[in-house]
């Protein structure tokens, strides 16, 4: 066993893990953060996306120790517990959610994009979410929700 130290959703955490643990399993099984989903388990579908030091990564193929000393943001880190984050609000408002399984990761990909580029083009939005599969197929609503956050 070893101790993983990281800044998780704004707070320093220490958690005992096995060196072979994956970040996804640490988040879900050790820390109880169930918003991060496992889809394909191979890094393709993007359902397990989290933000690691500002960049999106698929946590299902990320050794947990890659997060040592770094900052991790999961969907649980967006809202303050009272109000939804503006991206979450936009997804609700635009009906950008059907089954919801891809949604936490989709919102994190949107956040990573908007944090770097507050005025993305439609093409840039499409690229930013190109690693997040939505099998309900509601991409247009997702794009509209993200576009609604662009301040003129």
């Amino acid at each position: 066993m070893t101790v993983l130290k990281m800044k998780l959703n704004g707070k320093q955490v220490e958690v005992e893990i096995k060196p072979s643990d994956l970040l996804l399993n640490v988040l879900r099984d050790k820390l109880g953060l169930m918003g991060t989903k496992e889809g394909c388990g191979e890094g393709d579908c993007g359902a397990c996306t989290v933000i690691l030091d500002g960049e999106t990564v698929t946590s299902c193929i990320t050794p947990a120790l890659k997060a040592m000393g770094k900052e991790v943001i999961t969907i649980e880190g967006l809202s303050d517990g009272k109000e939804l984050h503006p991206i979450q609000k936009a997804f609700v408002e635009y009906g950008a959610i059907q089954c919801g399984y891809c949604t936490p990761a989709m919102i994190l990909s949107a956040k990573a994009l908007l944090d770097k580029n507050p005025t993305p083009t439609r093409e840039e939005i499409k690229t930013a979410i190109s690693g997040n599969l939505c099998r309900c197929g509601g991409y247009e609503y997702i794009i509209a929700a993200i576009q609604s956050l662009i301040k003129p």
């Binding site: 890094g43 993007g46 996306t49 960049e55 698929t58 193929i61 990909s109 990573a112 690693g131």
Partner: peptide
């Protein structure tokens, strides 16, 4: 290559 996530890693 791959997707944004894969390119980041």
């Amino acid at each position: 290559v791959g997707s944004p996530q894969i390119r980041n890693m």
